[in-house]
Amino acid sequence: MSKPVLIIGGGPAGLAAAHSLATVGKESVIVEKEDRLGGAPILSGYAKLVPTGEWAKDAIGGMVKRVEAESSVKVVTGTKVTDFDGSPGNFTAKLSNGDAVDAEAVIVCSGFTHFDSVNKPEWGFGTYEDVVTTTQVEQMISSGQGVRCPSDDRKPQRVAILLCVGSRDRQIGREWCSKICCTVSSNIAMEIREELPDCHVYIYYMDIRTFGLYETKYYWKSQEEFKVKYIKARIAEVTSDGEKLIVKGEDTLVKRPITIPFDMVVHAIGMDPNVDNPEISETLGIDLETHGFIDVANRYGAMGATSRPGVYVAGSATGPETIDDSIAQGHAAAMAVLSGARDLKTA
């Protein structure tokens, strides 16, 4: 029982796992490749979170503080695991800073990578300054600057949000639904309408997947209270007439072609497998599933078991995941580690 648990990645899942382990007096080491804890919500500067509406820096920041205050959690930032060996109860991980960590078990909470919109050039990202991603809009809101067109800092009067950018698209090898973008987009749409009541916000969709309870709180609310306009159309291209962005498509429900000028176009970017996954898979000796996320080997026994005994996975490393579920999985993986340890002792 003397060895700590190695947690790779200090985002919502990793923070939750560390907190759970600390609660029962189990030591852990968080190895985070970036220079601070918090994961995507902190590093990418998210604004208000779904579904609580709390600011990311308060909610996830609070989780970071809670973990940093625990004496049984050791945090190593700016570091990766470079080498890994051993068996359950007795692993050794070498770190990029030269140190080595002896660990009883590992929880991989390495998260995801935001889809890079440059890979859908027809939608203008990288060509026109005023084509931005949902992440950038989150940053505009969370920084307090407000939603402005990057080209000249003006308040947009017309904003188009394009859904499924980097999701559900065989053309670019991303067949999965990223799960959160519909909800995030309707949340952002409401934020924009609240800050800029004169701004018209359109959402272009293939299907709306504000799953579960998000239907009323985001999809319906954004339509009924915030007058966000939803149009069933996948946009063909985003161009510019020199002044405005021009969005072309077909409103499929009324069978009419549309060519509409916009001040700002927002890509609702999806969740890619972490770009480091091949390396993580190689180093830790764990399998990836067909899309490139980390494969979950056991769904009904040990929570978050990977293909290698003693190595667990939680959060969006396993596939597109909400923050809430990532946190829940982090806690559950910690529990799986504890029950794995009990099995080892009785064996």
Partner: peptide, 9 residues
């Protein structure tokens, strides 16, 4: 699934 990409293009 009727997204309309074909008609748009």
């Amino acid at each position: 699934w009727q997204c309309g990409s074909c008609t748009n293009a």
